[in-house]
Write a protein that binds this DNA or RNA. Structure first.
Lengths: 161, 161
DNA sequence: CTATATATTTCAGCTCGCTTAACTATTTAA
DNA sequence: TTAAATAGTTAAGCGAGCTGAAATATATAG
């Protein structure tokens, strides 16, 4: 076990602070919008990857296709998603966000991150510039990292032996 | 509505990337440990503020004291918390983590942030140093911000008029 | 002392999200 | 063409988590 890297420790502090804030805002919005965390997760995934099949979404969320189907049914009833037949393979369903679904999702994200404006206002121009550079590096590296892990997901994340 | 501040945009990107990663790891651990998000949230809050009353915890979580009481009962049964009478006011219960509760919480946090080691490994010494400085500033400002908001919470967050 | 306020628990009843199992429809392989 | 695989839905049943209302115990105000 490695000793505490000050870099990692700082990163942990920041993630703890930012996640607590973001989650708090987000849960507040989710509650008043009548949507659950799971439902937002589904909307988010559908938005991110474009169209998705029922089973794929279930795998992403870590649930059975039956559970995914039931959740999607609720989202259809709320007019947040559209579920249509894939013309190339009529067994699969194409799932996309409706206009309303996109709006709800966007508003949730905005609610989650609204405090960032206040944070920005409390920083000087130079501080902001320096932080922007640092975070840009982080985002880039983390994105590459993500792809690396995705390749190994069979081994380490989804199904350990 | 302000135009997109590149600082805020970068911050949003980073939070999206880091939250998606952290939440994914965390949900994975939560699932295999048999605890729900809400339960972890409760453990986290109890850990953060030391001891807490039932109603206080419910208010923090945004639920009635009845709901909080029921959740705490489940946590007691799992031996994650201790619930005892407050000697100064025997109506209220003191709620603290057990050793097991602390361990489970710490492991959850570790699972959530395990990917940071990989991220650290992908950065040079200079990059890490620069990012550490930037994040230290962010953490400090965000913490101050938090207190500022706490003072206004009656107005803007907990109970809007 | 009595009335009221506060802290917590219990209960009935509800929704959500989950599972397994059974079923339908469609595609693909032999 | 028939058999097997795949995608999705449906149904029954479970536990978590929530609410409102009622009950209990304690503290505090008059």
């Amino acid at each position: 076990m490695p000793l505490a890297d000050p870099f990692v420790a700082t990163l942990q502090s920041w993630i703890e602070v930012s996640m607590r804030r973001s989650m708090r805002n987000f849960l507040h919005y989710a509650r008043e919008s009548g949507l659950s965390m799971s439902q937002f997760g589904a909307l988010f995934h559908i938005h991110r990857i474009g169209s998705s099949g029922v089973t794929d979404l279930g795998e992403y969320l870590g649930v059975t296709s039956a559970a995914a189907s039931q959740m999607l049914e609720r989202l259809v009833q709320q007019e947040l998603i559209l579920r249509s037949e894939d013309p190339h393979d009529r067994r699969v369903k194409q799932i996309v966000l409706t206009e309303k679904g996109s709006q709800v999702l966007a508003e949730g994200i905005r609610a989650r991150q609204g405090w960032l404006d206040d944070l920005a206002a409390s920083l000087s121009f130079d501080e902001k510039q320096q932080i922007t550079m640092a975070l840009t590096t982080l985002v880039e590296k983390a994105t590459h990292l993500k792809q690396a892990v995705k390749q190994n997901s069979n081994l380490f994340i989804e199904e350990h032996p």
